[in-house]
Design a protein around this nucleic acid. Structure first.
Length: 151
DNA sequence: CTGTTGACAGCTA
DNA sequence: ATAGCTGCCAACA
């Protein structure tokens, strides 16, 4: 299948998955990729977020209906991609009650053990598998990172 | 058109 | 604990 369609499917899936992240919770780029069945493409998740339409664009998926601020890297750190970007993300998270911390380097972190959201399956997908099969879901594979940066 | 650069992450040394 | 490699692929110089 054509690459453009593939890319469109991917972007659509990424945005949809991110919309499943509960208010006040955060997850990682890698986990979004994992939920989509593409564990080796966490970078492409970031690529999609980079091109997320603005709130006033009128696009189906835009920065006002896609909680982009709830996606951070696997270390629990808010990746910087431009001047002040990490600050804005931290502020957006603080608005929804997520407490952030900073290390000596000024890097901003979120404690996954408190705000992490790492379900093994996308909530919407669980509904689809609602057939009689005794498929037990392995609850949650929370990576209790315990915020490594203990120094 | 080739080479680099990323909103990343896991493995290796 | 830290640094370097590798996989991935779109955007850009």
């Amino acid at each position: 299948m054509p690459r453009s369609e593939e890319a469109e499917w991917w972007a659509n899936a990424v945005y949809s998955a991110i919309q499943e992240i509960p208010h006040g919770k955060v997850t990682s780029y890698g986990h979004i990729a994992l939920l989509l069945g593409e564990p080796q493409r966490p970078r492409q998740v970031g690529v999609c977020l980079k091109s997320l339409a603005g709130a006033e664009s009128g696009a189906h998926f835009n920065s006002s209906n896609v909680p982009w601020q709830r996606v951070i890297n696997a270390k629990g750190m808010i990746s910087h991609r431009g001047p002040g970007s990490a600050e804005r993300q931290a502020e957006a998270l603080a608005t929804e009650g997520v407490e952030v911390t900073r290390d000596s380097m000024g890097e901003i972190y979120v404690d996954f053990s408190r705000y992490g959201w790492f379900p093994s399956r996308l909530p919407s997908e669980e509904e689809q598998e609602a057939d009689g099969g005794g498929k037990k879901m392995d609850s949650c594979l929370c990576k209790s990172h315990s915020v490594a940066h203990v120094a």
